[in-house]
Design a protein around this nucleic acid. Structure first.
Length: 455
RNA sequence: GUCCCCUUCGUCUAGUGGUCUAGGACGUCGCCCUCUCACGGCGAUAACAGGGAUUCGAAUUCCCUAGGGGACGCCA
């Protein structure tokens, strides 16, 4: 049997880090087994669903290079089908109309709570005759859930979990306005889409028992479920906007590379021995549900920084340049682009994020302003300039050779020469190596910058 | 309140009864490399929530306690 997984976000907000990880895991599971990964937009809540959120989710997935098969399924478009199936359940006696008002339901819950039970529907219309129906109340359709026995979930991650059916009530399948609920829609769509495996957040665990009851009512096969623990904020509490519950776009804006974000997410709740840096190819090869963890984790930004630094270092220079120019958002002259490209290797190993890279890169993009130097530095620069002028073979290797020779000939410490050059070329004390910069600026620009200080 | 789940260094985790005086990674600290800063290298720091039980032997199995989380909607 071929594996079909899905990611089914509701477009009521951005794609956050937890959702991205869920998508990643489902994607990896499907791709690892050569199966399909589908996308379903759960937009049945018309009040809160927005097109912006749909776009944000799609963009986020694309940025992470989590590609789905076929077109996304929009759940709302399947409303009629969902309702018809619910009605067929009523005909079969597996569901029923309930005419309870909001006040009655509230009273039921309060009563249950006061008895120390979990608040739930008491089944008052379960076996009641249609004729009793109040004329002015539009009914909902409820599932006739089993009253006795228990429902068991064999979870891929959490193991076997059994819940007494007494804990579950007759859930609403179709609302009084005639629209299907999440409970119904998820089950029908998962069935129709041929979903075989569902990896989702732990917060859905208790829903799953309800889903199983609906599957059973229809007599359909139940997919394999894997409930992964939630990601917590740095303080261990539920992830909220206060901590890392940012949209995935915020990670891009903060200068993270998608492969670093994926690697980081992958290690949150999944492991492969002692491996930390895991490429996409390796992840695809190694990912199985056996290695999913059972306990909640927190997003560690210093680890993300570290991973990002790694992926920056191994990233292709021209790709980084392209990203950098987008980030700067201004026109960069051809000359400066060339400088940046030549200097990229030296810059990228000093940056943990694209934002840091952008700051470092200003040494090559800022306009040159000559700074005053003291007479000692001036003397050093004067003689150094003469020497540099004479160098025809302007390569890193040769520059190093020549300048080191020069240093011992003149009996000037190499550190002094280097710091003087660094300062005059960039106006800064912290930069990439001077050879790196001499090459990046090129001979002409380098000499003219030194000259500008001497005049 | 009820039900369910979780608990190894500060953080992410390895570990599925002996190979664990518990391994790796990030962070932190120190040293080395060195033209500054990084990178890199070496080293240090630091954990099995607590208590019982099973066993010759338990981080690993079972029970209890504590702590944390999740769910209890005509939201998804």
């Amino acid at each position: 049997m071929s594996i079909v997984t899905r990611f089914a976000p509701s477009p009521t907000g951005f794609l956050h880090i937890g959702g991205a990880r869920t998508a990643l895991f489902n994607w990896l599971l499907a791709r690892h087994h050569g199966g399909k990964f589908l996308l379903r937009i759960e937009d049945t809540d018309r009040e809160r669903s927005t097109q912006e959120a749909v776009d944000a989710i799609l963009d986020g997935l694309k940025w992470l290079e989590i590609n789905w098969d076929g077109e996304p399924v929009f759940q709302f478009s399947r409303t009629r089908h969902h309702v018809e199936l619910a009605e067929s359940l009523v005909k079969e006696g597996k569901a029923y109309y309930c005419y309870c008002t909001a006040e009655e339901l509230e009273a039921m819950r309060n009563e249950a709570r006061s008895k120390g039970l979990s608040p739930k529907y008491n089944g008052m219309w379960r076996d009641r005759d249609h004729g009793d129906a109040p004329a002015c109340v539009n009914p909902v359709i409820r599932l006739k859930a089993p009253l006795d026995g228990d429902t068991t979930l064999c979870d891929i991650v959490q193991g076997k979990i059994t819940v007494s059916n007494k804990e579950l009530d007759d859930m609403v399948l179709v609302r009084s306005d005639g629209t299907p609920t999440f409970m119904l829609s998820v089950v029908v769509d998962d069935h129709d889409m041929g979903i075989t495996h569902v990896i989702r957040g732990d917060d859905h665990l208790t829903n799953t028992f309800r889903h199983i009851q609906i599957f059973n009512a229809f007599g359909w096969n139940i997919p394999q479920y894997g409930h992964i623990p939630l990601i917590h904020g740095p303080d261990g509490a539920k992830l909220s906007k206060r901590h890392g519950a940012l949209g995935i776009d915020a990670y891009r804006d903060r200068g993270y590379l998608p492969e670093a974000v994926c690697n980081c997410l992958l290690r949150l709740g999944w492991s492969h021995g002692d491996d930390e840096i895991i490429s996409r190819e390796q992840a695809l090869e190694w990912f199985t549900t056996e290695n999913l963890g059972k306990s909640a984790s927190r997003l560690d930004f210093s680890k993300l920084d570290n991973l990002n630094g790694h992926y920056m270092r191994i990233a292709d220079n021209s790709r980084l340049l392209k990203n950098l120019i987008e980030l700067i958002g201004e026109n960069i002259s051809e000359e400066k682009r060339l400088r940046l490209l030549r200097g990229m290797s030296g810059l990228k190993q000093r940056a943990k994020t694209m934002l840091e890279l952008r700051d470092l890169a200003t040494i090559y993009t800022n306009d040159f302003v000559p700074e005053k130097v003291n007479s000692e530095t001036q003397n050093i620069l004067e003689t150094t300039l003469a020497r540099l002028k004479s160098i025809e073979d302007w390569t890193e290797e040769n520059l190093e050779k020549q300048l080191r020779e020069f240093s011992s000939e003149k009996n000037i410490s190499f550190g002094k020469i280097a710091q003087s050059l660094r300062n005059v070329l960039t106006g800064r004390k912290i930069t990439p190596s001077i050879f790196d910069m001499l090459i990046s600026f090129g001979k002409n620009e380098s000499l003219s910058r030194i000259n500008a200080v001497l005049v």
